[in-house]
Simulated scan of single mutants.
Amino acid sequence: MLPKTAVHLTSILDNDFYKFTMQCAVAQLFPNAKARYAFINRGNHDFPPGFGIALRQAVDAIATLRLCKEEKQFLLSNCPYLSPVYLDLLEGYQYDPTEVDIRQEGTNLQIHVEGYWYRAILWEVPLLALVSELYYELNDLPRDPDEEVSKRTANKIISYNKLGVTIAEFGTRRRHSYKVHRLVMEALKQHRGESFVGTSNVHFSMLYQMKPIGTHAHEWFMFHAAKYGFKLANALGLENWVEVYRGDLGIALSDTYTTDVFFRSFDKKFGKLFDGVRHDSGDPLSFATKTIEHYKRLGINPLSKTIIFSDALNYGKVIPIAEFCKGKIGFSFGIGTNFTNDAGVKPMNIVMKLVEAFPEKNTWIPVVKLSDETGKYTGDPAMIGLAKQLLQLT
């Protein structure tokens, strides 16, 4: 009989910030929409016997979490663009474990989430964090000592300080464990210098008194494709984001249907309204070149804008990007797994994606993500083919 695991979440804010910003926008604009998510085991990891049972226990325990008064006050003070109506909604929100279906057959794990989009949207990151932590615990995989994890993190941020770049921590979804994540945050805060500017994790933002970082994810544009069609997804996704946030949270994610398609919609209006764009797939130097040229065509000085690079980064990858962008365009970096799962064990390669959307008074529609790297395409093959045809992608 599998022992009851000690792995659990301690705060409803232990999640990426863009989940809350999107939840706020969804509740305002699409309160009747529904969504389905699926776990994707990219690394083909084998899960030990009883893993599904242990994960079920951890998921059921999440239902006890509530937004406390101190957490609500933190959001009120640091995120004025989140409406009071939304914060009241979040205060009354609780995870519903019946929205999560977990099945294990042999070493194969399946996880599906279904519910109203404004509710189901918060599940992705906590589920991935729980899967990762449970995987190491139940496989009894030893990690490096605390002191070594802290020292390694300190050396990294010291190196980034010497390089003269700004870095944010983006590693909740694939962290080794909550404890390792906290060790990393403590080291980053202690040795932050001018480089460390914050974290995407709202719980740790509050714990270490810094503003949370993030805007929106691929699912924002994927839903818009389901509701309005592939050709209008980027433009209306951006338009609706502006409608809710009126110029705040101004970094646009560009690669849901490839950057080339995104820039067809990213006209001078959006170029001026948004502070910059985020790179999440494909060659970063090619992306930077395209972005710089696009801003110049719009008559916008690229140095007044910022690219956030966030695709599986480490120090070695950051150096050439920084050298290329310096003096051409503003830039910063979001680093995830290399911070929160550099603990002496192999990081997992797992994701959870929106797979179907149910726009109001519609039907379930498969959604896809194409990205700038064909190996990262996700979704129904037939729908991927349709998207490529409609968007004139070869």
Rank of each mutant, 00 (worst) to 15 (best):
T5C: 10
A6I: 10
L13N: 14
D14S: 14
C24E: 13
A25D: 05
V26N: 10
V26S: 08
K34C: 06
Y37I: 05
A38E: 14
I40T: 12
R42C: 05
G43F: 02
P49D: 11
F51Y: 09
G52M: 07
L55W: 12
Q57C: 00
V59S: 04
D60S: 01
C68W: 01
K69V: 13
E70V: 12
E70F: 06
Q73M: 10
N78F: 04
Y81H: 07
S83L: 03
Y86G: 06
G92Q: 06
Q94P: 00
P97G: 05
T98D: 12
D101V: 09
G106S: 03
Q110H: 07
V113M: 07
E114H: 05
Y118G: 00
Y118A: 00
W123H: 15
W123S: 05
L128M: 11
A129R: 02
S132R: 02
E133A: 10
L134I: 03
R143L: 01
R143H: 00
D146I: 01
E148F: 02
R152K: 15
I157F: 03
N161P: 06
L163R: 09
L163M: 11
T166G: 00
T166W: 01
T166I: 01
R173M: 03
R175E: 01
R175D: 00
H176D: 01
K179T: 10
K189W: 04
Q190R: 13
G193Q: 13
G193N: 13
S195G: 15
F196H: 11
V197H: 04
V197W: 02
G198S: 08
V202D: 00
L207H: 02
L207R: 11
Y208F: 15
Y208M: 10
T215L: 01
W220D: 11
F223E: 07
Y228R: 13
K231S: 13
A235E: 14
L238D: 04
W241E: 06
E243F: 01
R246W: 01
G250M: 09
G250W: 08
I251E: 06
D255W: 02
T256M: 06
Y257T: 03
F263P: 13
K268W: 12
F270E: 06
L273R: 08
F274H: 07
D275H: 11
S281K: 05
S281P: 05
D283P: 13
L285N: 03
F287K: 02
F287D: 10
I292W: 09
H294I: 10
P302V: 08
S304D: 14
I307Q: 14
F309Q: 10
Y315M: 08
G316L: 08
V318F: 12
I319C: 06
K326L: 10
G327N: 12
G330M: 04
S332T: 14
F333V: 08
F339H: 15
N341D: 14
D342R: 08
V345Y: 09
P347F: 02
L354N: 12
N362C: 10
I365Y: 01
V368T: 03
G379L: 09
D380H: 11
P381W: 08
P381V: 12
G385A: 15
L393Q: 14
L393S: 04
T394G: 05
